[in-house]
Amino acid sequence: MTVAAPTEDGSATELLGTLAADRATGALSTESGVLYLSAGDVVHVESAHSPDLGDLLTRSGAVTPDGWWEAVERAGAGHRVGRRLVDSGRLTAGALELCHLGALFDAAYFALAPGSVALRFRPGAAHWLGAVRPVPVATVLRETWRRRDLLHRLWPDPAVDTAPLTRVPGVDPADLPPRRGRTLALVDGARTAAHIASALAYRTFHTLVELRRLAAAGIVTPAPPPPTAPVHRVPGEDGAAWDEPDTALLRRLLHALEAL
């Protein structure tokens, strides 16, 4: 099957529907993620804004880091990492399916963000994890819209989902519900929701819910951008003046030269 190359203004959601109808197999890239399909169903999704499956499994203690990387090294080339985890007894099939489904929906929320453009479709491309439980495209879209609607009702600014976050001083995380308090404790002006979810081994969506509630309460806001470095201008055609020299530094250099 051949698929027309996405245009710059092509909707990722629309193309995903076309791929599903054509029972396509391959990888659809957007600005915020990659969706892997097999026979028209979604089998895996990745996004930089959401912890990956290995991160969640190892940080939660479900699989040891050595066990995870052993499966990747032995079965990655054959696209059977998930199968290897189960066959080696490191994880039950049910636990793998549950964790994978959560990671898939979390990443799809970002990969299919409003206005997301389909950048590229690679026919035949497969993820090294392998298929765990295929999910119909309609189910992925319905869950993505449900999450988007819920988060919007909690707090309408989606910047909280991806930006580094800061918190107002004077709020003690211990005064909040446990999950919300643990989330707030990691807001430091540099971490994003993905960083916080990864550190806590939480599902990204659950973390977004707590962060939007904190934002609605005025406790958390996107961090201001870092200050830009000052530009030292030199004389040019625009008439810019020299920066004033560091006379103390010049004096020390002169003394050093005279001592030679």
Rank of each mutant, 00 (worst) to 15 (best):
W145M: 15
D9H: 08
A240W: 07
G82V: 05
G17W: 13
T221L: 12
S116I: 09
L208Q: 10
F205V: 07
L141S: 05
G239C: 06
L257N: 14
F205S: 12
L91T: 01
A113M: 09
V140Y: 08
P6K: 01
R83K: 07
G33Q: 04
Y36G: 11
A159W: 05
E46D: 15
G89Q: 00
A190D: 09
L19E: 02
V160H: 01
A21K: 07
S116M: 14
S88P: 06
E8K: 12
A75K: 09
G10P: 06
E258H: 07
A201R: 02
T192C: 14
S88L: 09
G76L: 11
S47Q: 11
P169Y: 01
L184T: 02
L200Y: 00
A216T: 00
P177S: 06
G124V: 07
R23S: 10
T228C: 08
T64H: 04
L176V: 03
A126C: 13
A193Q: 02
T139N: 12
G115E: 14
T166F: 01
V168R: 05
P225E: 10
L35Y: 13
R23N: 06
V168K: 04
R167D: 12
L35T: 14
P230Y: 04
P222Q: 01
G17K: 07
E70F: 10
A126G: 14
G218Q: 03
A138F: 13
A24H: 09
A62F: 04
R233G: 13
A259V: 05
V187A: 01
G76W: 11
L57Q: 03
R167C: 14
A216F: 00
D9C: 06
T207F: 01
L53F: 07
R74C: 12
H44R: 13
A4Q: 09
I219N: 03
L129K: 08
D246W: 05
H100E: 08
D55N: 14
V3P: 07
A193K: 02
V43C: 08
G54P: 03
T58D: 13
A21T: 07
R212Y: 00
L249A: 15
D161A: 12
G67L: 02
D157M: 03
P164A: 02
T7P: 09
G67K: 02
P226V: 04
R84G: 06
T18R: 11
D188C: 04
P178G: 13
P65E: 13
L91G: 00
L98P: 04
L37H: 10
L208E: 03
A216V: 00
G124A: 12
R59M: 12
L129H: 10
T207S: 01
D149F: 14
E14D: 15
P226A: 03
G17E: 03
D22K: 13
H152M: 08
A159L: 08
V43T: 09
A159R: 12
L249C: 08
A20E: 14
V86H: 06
R182A: 12
D9S: 11
V42T: 10
G33W: 05
A194I: 03
P158G: 08
V63T: 01
A39S: 15
T183M: 07
V171S: 05
T204Y: 02
V81Q: 05
V42H: 06
S32Y: 15
